[in-house]
Design a protein around this nucleic acid. Sequence first.
DNA 1: TGTACATCAGTGAACGCGCGTTCACTGATGTAC
DNA 2: TGTACATCAGTGAACGCGCGTTCACTGATGTAC
Lengths: 187, 187
Amino acid sequence: MGHSQADKMRSRERILSEAAEQIRDGGLESVSVGKLMRRANLTHGGFYGHFASRADLLAHALERALDDGATAFEAKKGSTHPDYAVTVKSYLSRKHRDSRTTGCAIAALAGDVARAEEPVREVMSAHIEQFVARMDRALGGAPEKALFAVSALIGALVVSRVMADEKQSDAVLAAAKRELLALEENC
Amino acid sequence: MGHSQADKMRSRERILSEAAEQIRDGGLESVSVGKLMRRANLTHGGFYGHFASRADLLAHALERALDDGATAFEAKKGSTHPDYAVTVKSYLSRKHRDSRTTGCAIAALAGDVARAEEPVREVMSAHIEQFVARMDRALGGAPEKALFAVSALIGALVVSRVMADEKQSDAVLAAAKRELLALEENC
DNA sequence: TGTACATCAGTGAACGCGCGTTCACTGATGTAC
DNA sequence: TGTACATCAGTGAACGCGCGTTCACTGATGTAC
């Protein structure tokens, strides 16, 4: 609640990271300006000193969530050559399934974004392509397989989060893990 | 706008099928009682003669959407032995990708349902298991592969609907089609 | 270094709006005689 | 078969509520002298 320029930066940062968590937990439409500002220990009126509108905030929050999520399931970020098997196992882990709020934002928000306008879809498209490119490299150059693997990873994670029975949910992850690890061997 | 019992049945039917379309187009939260009733050529007050609440309607609409969607991408419904390759090709067709409103409701709503309460997740879980069972039969008994195939089909369709570039979107469908058809041969 | 003041981060009341839900009402339906 | 009336499908005004956004204000910050 300070008044310095540094405080403002920190406020914006708090708003944005709260929003990035919120959209992964409840979807893009679940963000309300009032609740968000309260969570960031501010009052609603100050919001428009940071963002032009709720839609503007949503666009920034999506970017933030995608950036956060991209590193969340990687064993070690910064490793120049991400390992395919490690990524698959991490992506399809129970831990990742159970941490919607901090995990891969593509899986959390693909359904919402599929319904959104083209500019929003472009933002997520770019992140998907980055993910595919990383998997392509990890597979030693197999772009079609990488594209399929990414689709299948996302699908398995989303489906595992739907399954009400935990055994069934685990089975989804296990089946996908098994089949996707087998994919690498046929390279 | 009639007043007979038969009219009431038809009204309920109209409300429900409009809602089933609406949730697949805009998500569960996109349904508003007022707009829905207007689309069904009724006034908002009459809604509560058909459903106990908006939440009650949503549960019925999800069931309806899932039932409608299940038959949408099958070449011929009623065929006792659905063909694996035919189902994969139909599910991953551009036509299916472009008809969110009438296509598979699992793909359209999995993201929303993943965030919903357990009773809602149970409804979709049951439908996913039915889909898996059908694929299992089509594959001649390979439950793990069937589970993976269903996850991958859903993932590929969702991702293809996110991709802003049509070429990229087509590539997602093509890659998944190719890999999933290859799955059958290793049975 | 100390003071005077413009800037601007954050506050909270107020706005118009659409929402889900309730309810007194209307008039066609369908049943009892 | 014809009439009288209870039922109930559908209407539309009204409710309280939370929403996104605006704006006059407060007071700490940081700059000009």
